[in-house]
Design a protein around this nucleic acid. Structure first.
Lengths: 215, 215
DNA sequence: ATTGCAAGTAACTCAATGGTTACTTAACGG
DNA sequence: CCGTTAAGTAACCATTGAGTTACTTGCAAT
């Protein structure tokens, strides 16, 4: 059977890197918004303004694309998050705020948490390594007497992550409690302030360390 | 055109309540596991061992069923969660533990958080009311001097929810930090212990309240 | 008894969706 | 230059999956 107008190649110059990048960006937006099951391959292709076929060309299938998106975001976050203060009084408000600057990150993590049984995660090795780095810095702070030694550093780390990520991850519960949207600037300032004060809980019992200067 | 074997009614006795219940249970399991987009109506029907048509008969459409599931669970949790201790030292470990006894609840909340933009949530009125009840009890504790007054009770409530729900909501991040699965009993005991001690952060500055008796 | 309706069954529909086929052409090493 | 490969296009396709059609029947009130 004679097919009609097939193919019909490029009138514009080729640019694999740009195409790959466009797909990843569009996929990030779509997956973050809709999750894996809810995301539509055609929507991604349209948003990226590329031919759907290219998506399969570069990433194999939907699953592969999802993994690639996750991997890229993980790498990005790991890169700029690696070397920052580990003083809770600074770190808690800071991480809390960044959660709202990059909602896609939080959402991606949430989708990841919901997929499968929680085993076999993407880029496990690298992520574990950077977590270990963080824990090490916490332990150093403990020996330096800047952080309470009565707690397991892993528990402290987990508590810190909980406090900073939860409101962005569960905006509906936050709104229920606060009466305002998490997007509200006032809430973000107030809760950041709360976290700064609350960070006292992480300091050693009898250390009356005074924070930077702003008050 | 002559259709063949249509209909062919019940050889077993009818029981609308049982059928509705079976659908809701199956739907709860499926929605909690797969989310709205990932859930399959046919799977729910099969799991409930009912005819798919009945699902539409009772709940209109997939969306209606999802809402019904959420509503039922919300009501259930509200019922038995209403009147419990509001002393953080008890409440934190308690709620932390219950998060693992009913993983579907956490997952449902997470799916809810991810759907839409965070506005218009199900049973908003009732949920807000019971949240207000909680906040009121926290305020009472504050005036009784059992809870620090230097913090907004809403911030305290949000922090408490963060600390207790996060590990169940993000098992992969918890595993990254702890090195073990959240399902691990040891982790649950340890972190419950951590929360109990950590609850000191919620008590007034110079109150040296001694907790119950254990340890 | 009859009849009205909710409860129930099985087969059918059709749009949406992930993935493919079949083809074209820019680019680049030999 | 020339052939092989990678980048690109558009139409096509098989399947899935939400929702329906068309029918049957238990049960309760008249």
């Amino acid at each position: 059977m004679a097919r009609l107008g097939k193919g019909g190649g490029g009138l514009i110059a080729r640019n694999p890197d740009r195409t790959r990048g466009r797909i990843l960006s569009a996929a990030l937006a779509e997956f973050a918004a809709q999750g894996f099951a809810g995301a539509r391959v055609d929507v991604i292709a349209r948003r990226a303004a590329i031919n759907k076929r290219m998506l399969y060309h570069y990433f194999g299938d939907k699953e592969g694309l999802f993994k690639a998106v996750l991997r890229r975001k993980v790498a990005e976050r790991r890169a700029w998050g690696e070397n920052l203060s580990s003083d809770p009084a600074e770190r808690l408000p800071f991480w809390f705020k960044t959660a709202f600057d990059d909602p896609n990150w939080i959402r991606l993590l949430a989708w990841e948490a919901l997929r499968g049984d929680g085993q076999k995660i993407i880029d496990e090795k690298e992520r574990r390594a950077s977590t270990m780095g963080w824990l090490k810095r916490l332990r150093q702070r403990q020996t330096r007497g800047e952080l309470s030694v009565e707690f397991d550093p892993r528990h402290l780390a987990l508590a810190m992550q909980s406090l900073t990520m939860f409101p962005a991850a569960f905006p509906q519960l936050t709104r229920l409690i606060m009466g305002r949207t998490v997007a509200d600037g006032k809430f973000q300032r107030d809760y950041a302030g709360f976290l700064e004060k609350f960070a006292a809980a992480f300091r050693p019992k009898n250390s009356k360390r005074v924070k930077k200067s702003n008050a």
